[in-house]
Design a protein around this nucleic acid. Structure first.
Lengths: 134, 134
DNA sequence: CGGCATCCTTTAAGATACTG
DNA sequence: CAGTATCTTAAAGGATGCCG
C-alpha cells in the first residue's frame, strides 16, 4: 500500500490480498455488475449515449447507470463529452486506459456465457444432493 | 435465455446484456470481491484450508468466506473435501471448471495492480476539477 | 435528453457468540 | 478447526419528482 518509487528500483507493493489496499477496491469496482457491461458495450460499439446504453443494458435503472458512469469517469476509464445542444447530447467513450480493460473483461464475459450451462448443471446436482452431509 | 438444444443446431442464446439471463448473475458472482480472491488464491497455491484462506484474504470475515466458498462449491468451481478427523480438516481446491477461470481472473487482478496508480491519479484530477461543470 | 435529489425497501456485509 | 446462528449496520437498488 506504500508508494512505488524506490532508490533500488520499483516496488509496486499494491496487493489486493491486503486489507485496505486500493487495488482491492478497484478490482471490486471493475468487476461489478454494471461496470462490466458498460465497459463491454463501449468496447464493442464504441462511443455511445446515455439512452442507448440504457437500452443496451437491459434492466439497468437510470440511477445505477448514471452512478456507474460517474465512477468510471472518475476512475479515468470512460470519457464524458457534453454537446451544448437542446435537447442535451452526451457521449460516453472508453479512454486509452479503459481500452486496456477490454480484453480482460471480454474474456470474463465470454467465460460466463461459455460455461453457464455447466454451472447450472452443477447447481442442480448440488441442490439435488441436498443439504445432507453438511 | 432459452435452452440450447435445437434440431437445427445449438443456439446458445445466453446473453448477459439481457435482463434475467443467468449468465449475467454468474458474471456478477465470479467478479465479486471475495470470489475473485478465493479463486485466485486457490489457483496460485492449490489446495487450501478454511483457516489458511482466511489468513490469505486479509480482512475477510468468517461469514463471508464461508458464504463465498458455499457458492463457489455449488457452482462447481471449487471442491470441498472433509477429512473425518478431530479437529476437523476441510480442504478446498479448484475443480477442472474452476481451473478454466484462472487465466481470465488473473488477468483482471493483474490489471488492477498494474493500473491502480493511473486510476488514483485520475480520481485526484477529477476531484480537483471539482463538481463544477456538472 | 440526461441527469440529480430524495425517500424508501431490499440485500449485503460485518461483528459477535456459540457448536459439531 | 470449521463452521452456523443471530444481530446490527452499511450499502445497493428502485420509484418518484424536478431541472438545465
Amino acid at each position: 500500500m506504500t508508494a512505488v518509487e524506490n532508490v533500488t528500483g520499483p516496488i509496486s507493493s499494491f496487493d489486493p490480498y491486503e486489507r485496505g489496499c486500493p487495488s482491492r477496491d478497484l478490482l471490486d469496482q471493475i468487476g461489478s455488475k454494471w461496470a462490466v457491461l458498460v465497459l463491454g458495450e463501449l468496447g464493442r460499439n464504441g462511443m455511445s449515449r446515455f439512452g442507448r446504453l440504457r437500452q443496451a443494458l437491459a434492466g439497468v435503472s437510470e440511477k445505477m447507470l448514471a452512478q456507474t458512469l460517474r465512477t468510471l469517469e472518475r476512475d479515468g476509464l470512460v470519457s464524458r463529452t457534453v454537446h451544448a445542444e437542446v435537447p442535451p447530447h452526451v457521449e460516453y467513450e472508453l479512454t486509452a486506459l479503459g481500452q486496456t480493460l477490454r480484453e480482460p473483461l471480454k474474456a470474463l464475459t465470454q467465460w460466463s456465457v461459455l460455461h453457464i450451462e455447466e454451472v447450472i448443471t452443477a447447481r442442480q446436482e448440488y441442490d439435488d444432493r441436498g443439504e445432507r452431509s453438511r
